[in-house]
Design a protein around this nucleic acid. Structure first.
Lengths: 212, 212
DNA sequence: GTCTATAGAAGGATAGAC
DNA sequence: GTCTATCCTTCTATAGAC
């Protein structure tokens, strides 16, 4: 396990990360990965026995990268408002750095849904939700956030953050008319998104009261 | 062009539609399509010269199916509130009928972004937006919906409707804990989503006023 | 129009030299 | 550890009989 070996393995892994994100498992070619890494195909198999094994390594790494981005939200001392602002800012910025990541992961998860379990096992959803709930008892009551409605809200938040990156080519066409660049759109979104969600939540308060 | 030929072509097209949606272009096999259609590979090439040609036909069809679902919203006589309720109900119901459609289209659009242009050409976005704007001048002013913010809102609406179908395996894992089925979640979403969006929009009104 | 057989190319994987 | 050469399977596509 020399310095050099470490370097080559790293090189292959990075090349594979790019190619798999770009083309997906089915579209990726071992040849392309080798070329991008500046070595030849045989070496790929020397370090990672098969295409599957190489892919698994990449997928595992990228998945934990994305999901780990959700945990810092648990930091105490932030209001719900503050948490949402923090989340959208960080999450959108993160996805800007890895623009193909979300699409790649969702795609591969759909191709092999079993895969998701291995990943999600690592993440303690229960603990995550309970901590959030504990921290924001007041808002949950005020905004009438029932256990039934909670998944609706959470998936909406994720959707608002992630969707632009998955539908980027369409969004870009839509933006063309108004002369706004995709990047400007994203920067704007960092503040639009939390305001949008908070507005939606606050309106539940009124709706609830008017029901009584 | 006998009855029979028409039938076979139709048969192939339907089989291809299923397989391409399931596996994507790269993952789809002509062999599988032939088998599903109950014929053999040679016939595929007799009707549709190449895999590419067959794929294009399927893609074109599916894309216009999805996008055409947006236009009935232009029907006059509905309030903005009514439009949003109508849209989410119809759109989610439509995606329930074709659960792999959105994922398939977004995936292939990302693989070949040029493709989107051929499709979007057919759709007169300008006319669409202008008609909406004309119909709801009052709300646009009341809610302070600037040209800059409009794409933010529209992409959020699309995101809330489409995302669950793209991220279905993840959503299902998240729902497991609460014992809610994906279908129940979707039914609930038909009313949650428009309320959520309308709440968010209405809150812009207040924010604006408090800024003055 | 439909089939069987097969060509021809591409891609994953291994053998073996250095 | 890295390379060249090559095997073997898979897949698209075509030829040709019926």
């Amino acid at each position: 396990m020399s310095e050099n070996e470490k370097q080559t393995e790293e090189l292959i892994f990075e090349a594979a990360t790019e190619v798999f994100q770009e083309k997906g498992y089915d579209g990726a070619r071992m040849h392309d990965i080798a070329q991008k890494a500046g070595i030849n195909k045989a070496l790929l198999h020397y370090y990672f026995r098969t295409k599957d094994a190489l892919f698994d390594a990449v997928f595992q790494k990228l998945a934990s990268m994305l999901f780990s981005k959700f945990t810092p939200i648990l930091r105490p001392g932030l209001s719900l408002d503050g948490k949402l602002n923090f989340f959208f800012r960080e999450h959108i910025e993160f996805l800007k750095t890895y623009p193909k990541l979300a699409h790649f992961l969702l795609n591969e998860i759909n191709r092999k849904p079993e895969r998701i379990k291995r990943i999600l096992e690592k993440i303690d959803f229960d603990h995550f939700f309970l901590t959030i709930a504990e921290m924001h008892k007041k808002e949950i009551e005020d905004y009438n956030i029932t256990p039934e409605i909670l998944p609706q809200i959470i998936t909406s938040i994720a959707a608002i953050s992630i969707f632009p990156f998955i539908a980027r080519p369409i969004v870009e066409v839509a933006l063309e008319k108004s002369g706004v660049s995709f990047n400007e759109y994203l920067e704007k979104r960092k503040e639009f998104a939390p305001d949008f969600v908070i507005g939606a939540l606050k309106s539940r308060k009124k709706t609830k009261k008017s029901n009584l």
